[in-house]
């Protein structure tokens, strides 16, 4: 792991109307890392992700990726810079086939990279088996695989994964987390939002804990996993 900082958020504030959702957070992601953002419902995890992708506009602060200020860009230009976002709730195109979904994932690079497609099918053989099937007919776990595969089709440098374990059978969660490790091994930097703190911290290099729009805690994943505060709040262990 190198020390090159690939991505930084500084003093980010986001509001929905008069309600402040993010109240000044800062974080950084180095090249090749898996960084996780943990937190309960409503802590602002998804808002942070959507603001990085410019689906929501920041009220203040800056988001920088390889020297580009993202807050000044429209949403559709983000993926071209090398940040791909697999959104919360998967958001696959339900009435299109698996294959068509993947092709749309490569929209920003115009031509499909056949090696990337092969790699995705190797990681998730289910997608290849069902490539002619409508995405809406897949199981939740398969849809999550598709959402991740779709976001990889643009050959991103950094992948934003928003709650890949949400509403998925435990056995598939395991399979998906294994593939996130594989994605990271192939050189893709990963920013992972999760409620499943234990699984996320086992996978990640570092973590940030978000509480009602502020960062309450941060540090190397192993330290967070061992800390009393995390144990108490997220892993359900008593003192």
């Amino acid at each position: 792991m190198s020390n090159d900082v690939l991505f930084t958020i500084e003093d980010l504030e986001v509001s929905y109307g008069s309600i402040a959702a993010i109240k000044g957070i800062s974080l950084e992601v180095r090249k090749g890392e898996i960084v996780t953002i943990l937190g309960a419902n409503g802590a602002g995890k998804t808002t942070t992700m959507r603001t990085i992708s410019q689906l929501i506009k920041a009220k203040a602060g800056s988001i920088r990726f390889k020297g580009h200020e993202l807050t000044k860009l429209p949403a559709h230009k983000i993926v071209k810079l090398g940040i791909s976002h697999s959104p919360e709730g998967r958001r696959v195109f339900g009435v299109l086939t698996v294959e068509e979904n993947l092709m749309l994932g490569a929209y920003s690079r115009r031509k499909v990279n056949p090696e990337t497609l092969r790699w995705i099918y190797e990681m998730f053989p289910r997608l290849e088996e069902r490539r002619k099937q409508l995405a809406g007919t897949l199981s939740g776990g398969e849809q999550q695989m598709l959402a991740i595969g779709r976001s990889l089709m643009s050959d991103p440098e950094m992948l934003l994964l928003d709650e890949p374990s949400l509403g998925i059978a435990p056995i598939l969660v395991k399979a998906i987390f294994k593939q996130i490790k594989e994605i990271s091994r192939q050189g893709v930097t990963v920013l992972l939002v999760e409620q499943n703190a234990k699984a996320a911290l086992k996978l990640a290099d570092r973590g940030y804990v978000l509480e009602v729009g502020r960062i309450a805690l941060d540090g190397p994943a192993a330290e967070l996993l061992a800390s009393d505060k995390i144990q108490e709040a997220y892993l359900g262990k008593k003192h």
Binding site: S53, L55, A75, H76, K77, S84, H85, F93, S108
Partner: peptide, 22 residues
């Protein structure tokens, strides 16, 4: 390609933006 962009936008505008569709 443009037709695909139209279909994606009609299904889910935010997801379409994440694909890089204007």
């Amino acid at each position: 390609r443009m037709g695909a962009a139209i279909r994606a936008s009609s299904l889910d505008q935010d997801a379409a933006r994440l694909m890089g569709i204007n």
